[in-house]
Design a protein around this nucleic acid. Structure first.
Lengths: 211, 211
DNA sequence: CAGAAACATGACAGTTGATTCATGTTTAGG
DNA sequence: CCTAAACATGAATCAACTGTCATGTTTCTG
């Protein structure tokens, strides 16, 4: 029924739960700040205030903790975005609110964000899954909006998926540039500028176009 | 005059140059495939067909090789893109040609591409520099196109820079998704779909818009 | 409250892999 | 063709970490 347990069983007592969380939190900070290679299990457990051996009660390895953190980020971000876009008037509005919320999230959780990006080089599978799942929800939302006429119909069969990946790429890069690297600058002008491209593209407004 | 040499001096003989190149090539393949952590100096030198010690004649450390490879990628990619976009009729055309060329490049140089992405976690400085420089050229090109009226004027002061980072994010994500992860699928439909968003945005064509 | 299960400890065994170095070999240039 | 500089070697050094384990301590359950 459980030939090779993928994950160690979860703690069964309150104490255990607390300890596990302390380790996870410390790992997030350590890996986020110093990077996966620098963050040793001993650094993590020191930061968490527990003995080294305790780590292995809850996690098989450092990689195991990465996986857990990626899943955690997925859940948190999904929740954050769902809340933020709930009141969107239409898809463009949802894009704006979503982008804004994403940048906020990155600024509030730089460590977690960096862990997820680095997971790519530690366990590619979990990283791909992370983005593939986001892309899937994105595709569904875009398809629906397309049917409602809120956004343009695609040029070909790949359009919706391509759009989803483009929008994710935009968010990730703006998150990196303005969320992580320049955490003080106001986000509104960034989001405004971004929405210009997302909604209308690079081309000048229609009246001037000749096509 | 050279207080602390950043880089070891370049080889002075043909033999040395060849050896250095063999090591660099092997490092690119090894790090690209197995990742920075897995690629040991001994693996790299074995692959290059030289002794371990030889590595340190040309590079101070494994990280040193990463830096070198990032710079190399920058030069190669810049060259590739310059050639590809030379004949562009206008900025939109340049975007199309550039995106297409970028995806091509990624498919042709997956190892190098992956090395650059991982460099972020090995020497963040060189990684930032890499993208910051690309962003700079991008800004210049976009500004010029804006003045020529080929693309819409920005909404605010950050527009040009934000656009540059968005377009880079788009390229990187499509490069990852369709260049690396799905290296067989034809690129044309991807590029077409992408250009829809880049040129016109998500909103339906102007006639249908009411604003 | 007693026994069992869960949890915690920290020293340590064992591995790994980066870097050094003393010793050769090859090349360039006079 | 001879010598200094350049290049190459690979065994040895050395530091760092991971994961284990024998030994406690705490919590749960009946």
């Amino acid at each position: 029924m459980n030939p090779r347990k993928r994950t160690l069983p979860l703690p069964k007592t309150g104490r255990g739960e607390l300890t596990r969380r302390k380790i996870l939190d410390a790992a997030k900070r350590e890996i986020g700040r110093r990077g996966f290679a620098e963050a040793s299990v001993s650094t993590i457990t020191a930061e968490a205030g527990v003995a080294q051996g305790t780590f292995y009660i809850y996690f098989r390895s450092k990689e195991d903790v990465m996986r857990e953190l990626v899943l955690h980020m997925g859940r948190m971000l999904r929740h954050h975005l769902t809340e933020a876009t709930a009141a969107a008037a239409d898809r463009i509005d949802a894009e704006r609110l979503g982008l804004r919320a994403f940048l906020d999230f990155v600024r509030r959780n730089p460590d977690l964000y960096k862990v997820v990006e680095e997971s790519q080089f530690v366990d590619e599978k979990v990283y791909r899954q992370y983005y593939t799942e986001f892309a899937k929800s994105y595709r569904i939302a875009l398809s629906a909006a397309e049917k409602r006429g809120e956004i343009a119909a695609g040029r070909n069969g790949s359009t919706t998926e391509v759009r989803a990946w483009m929008l994710m790429g935009i968010a990730v890069f703006l998150g990196q540039r303005y969320g992580l690297w320049d955490p003080k600058t106001p986000l509104e002008p960034i989001v405004d500028a971004a929405m210009g491209l997302i909604a209308d593209g690079l081309l000048p407004a229609a009246p001037a176009r000749n096509r």
